[in-house]
């Protein structure tokens, strides 16, 4: 049997040294290639912590995280960083773009950081991505000159620049107005369908979750439900206004 893209085996995470707080209690699940998953749960349920573990930014207190069958706990910091850069893309709630750089430079940055040297092919690839997120005419602007929605679309393009197998998105639409949010969400869906990139989206928004293929719900550091979502056919902006959102 093929190894799943990402497998969590009984993962726990504690914080604090004198007063130990267990944030995650024995989490196990797998993410398969090309999946489109929502991670929901109330504030403080451990979503962000889980996301950081999945993104190999942090290490679990116990349990194993396997990326394509490889135990990430056995990797050194440097190897882990390289693996992260090449396999996983991030979209944060606050776009977290580098303000000193233009849109196209921001999109190139992960490739540049990985290979160490800029070339024309890299630039062409970044321009192609920006065209796909509809920012062909803005690519040489400083990212600080772009609107919130545009910035988030640049962030999506950046997350995809290394053609990762998995993109982790933390409230990618949380800071945007409905229209921009829908635009960004539609882009994620589009890349998922066209390139087979797996997505895991952390969200508060049940409407957004409902449009994913699978919904994992986290409460108090435990998975309370893991079910398939809606069919993704929602044309949500109007639906939401009609209050027709939900399961």
């Amino acid at each position: 049997m093929d190894d799943p893209l990402l497998r969590l085996e009984d993962v726990t995470k504690d914080y604090g040294e004198r007063v130990v707080t267990r944030v995650l209690h024995g989490i196990s699940f797998t993410l398969s290639s090309g999946g489109f998953t929502a991670l929901i749960g109330p504030s403080g349920s451990g979503k962000s912590t889980l996301l950081h573990l999945l993104g190999l930014l942090d290490r679990p207190t116990s349990g194993r995280i396997l990326l394509r069958g490889c135990d990430t706990g056995e990797l050194g910091q440097h190897a882990l960083g390289r693996l992260r850069g090449r396999t996983i893309g991030f979209v944060f709630q606050f776009h977290h773009l580098l303000p000193a750089f233009t849109a196209v430079e921001n999109v190139m940055m992960p490739i540049l950081a990985d290979r160490g040297r800029a070339d024309d092919e890299m630039r062409g690839h970044a321009i192609g991505l920006l065209e796909r997120v509809g920012l062909a005419d803005r690519m040489h602007n400083r990212v600080t000159d772009l609107s919130g929605g545009q910035q988030q679309r640049v962030a999506v393009a950046r997350a995809l620049s290394m053609t990762p197998a998995l993109v982790l998105a933390d409230e990618p639409t949380g800071n945007l107005d409905t229209q921009s949010g829908d635009q960004v969400f539609a882009l994620l869906r589009q890349f998922n369908r066209e390139q087979g990139t797996a997505f895991l989206i952390v969200t508060h928004d049940p409407c957004l979750a409902a449009r994913c293929d699978r919904i994992i719900e986290l409460v108090d550091g435990r998975i309370t439900s893991d079910r398939s979502g809606g069919d993704g056919q929602w044309d949500s902006a109007s639906d939401r206004r009609d209050g027709r959102c939900g399961d």
Binding site: Q77, G81, R82, G85, R86, L98, M109, D114, R158
Partner: peptide, 14 residues
């Protein structure tokens, strides 16, 4: 920004 660069996999030595 440095944190973001590191999250993107930028090696520490860079």
């Amino acid at each position: 920004e440095i944190g973001i660069l590191k999250a993107m996999g930028t090696p520490t030595r860079r």
